[in-house]
Simulated assay, not measured.
Amino acid sequence: MTKSKILLIILLMGLFGLIYHEATHVYGAAKSYSTILPDTEKKINAGIDNVLVKTIKHKNVVNIEGWAYINGVKADQQKAFFVLASHDKQYILQAEKVSRGDLPAALNDSSDGVENSGVKALINASNIADGSYQLGFYIENGSDKAYSLVGYSLIKAEGKLECKENVNQKVDFQLNNTATQEINANVESVSKEGETYKLKGWGFLEGKPSKDSQVYVVLKQKDSNTVLFFDTQYQIRKDVVAYYKDNDVEYSGFKAIISEEELKGKQYSIGVFIVNGSSTGIYWSKESIGE
């Protein structure tokens, strides 16, 4: 074989390689990152604004936009990552920083540099094994490191991909008259979206730090003794801090998504139940859900 033929073959192989790369490579996909994650805890203030599952070059991808920062630590120099975690696997993916001038007013927070906390990522799901994953944020900011879940799941199975908000789970409590602490709370919004109800509000026990409290939505069936309890996703509420002039109430926010199936066609009054060690408190709102 002549040198010219060998050179031609090499050039053709290189050309085919380039064509294949262009046909299959997802440009802008988030790069993986390796570290040992800390335990999840209430340190990150975060939100997911938009999730879009789509196909690029015959590959399933997820475009995620949101914001995240470590509470009380300026976000200017932080590095943020999206985390996908299952019972036996985890993927840590670098997030791209996005300027968010709307956040200081929206979060009532002008001291943490939250305008620099916007994030987005394009996740190439072809690099992720089949399974069900919880979505979270991992943040490095100087010596501060924090990891928290955000109430979303990514499910990949048999070539299909879905990303959705988690439905909150029922928990086992018995409603009685043993509430020991004064409670301040409010159910701010209740909306029905498809086959779920979305609830948002805040609540805290007087004299108890909200960071150490567990907040539950409690539903009492009208004209019946049936009572249901659901866990919630915490939210940091700087506006509640400003109103009560008390930093201990900043983790008082909550949101919950409840499946319509759990209500079994009945109507329920909505309450807030809070536990902090041996202290408990309950609040009943004027709101209701169900038929």
Results as ranks from 00 to 15, higher is better:
158 E>K: 09
150 V>E: 07
158 E>Q: 08
158 E>L: 06
144 D>V: 04
154 L>S: 02
156 K>N: 02
152 Y>S: 06
137 F>L: 13
159 G>S: 09
152 Y>Q: 09
151 G>N: 13
146 A>S: 12
140 E>Y: 07
164 K>R: 15
139 I>Y: 07
134 Q>N: 15
156 K>L: 06
150 V>R: 03
142 G>E: 02
142 G>T: 00
137 F>H: 14
164 K>F: 14
164 K>D: 14
148 S>G: 10
161 L>V: 02
155 I>S: 10
135 L>M: 15
141 N>T: 05
155 I>E: 09
155 I>T: 07
146 A>M: 06
145 K>M: 02
160 K>S: 12
163 C>I: 09
138 Y>N: 08
156 K>I: 05
141 N>E: 05
149 L>D: 06
161 L>H: 02
151 G>P: 09
138 Y>F: 14
153 S>I: 01
160 K>R: 10
156 K>C: 01
159 G>W: 00
143 S>Q: 12
147 Y>C: 05
157 A>V: 03
164 K>H: 10
153 S>Q: 10
137 F>V: 14
136 G>T: 13
160 K>N: 10
152 Y>W: 15
154 L>F: 06
137 F>G: 10
138 Y>Q: 03
154 L>K: 01
143 S>G: 03
150 V>D: 04
137 F>S: 09
135 L>A: 06
133 Y>I: 07
137 F>Y: 15
148 S>Q: 15
150 V>Q: 05
162 E>Y: 09
145 K>L: 00
135 L>R: 04
164 K>P: 03
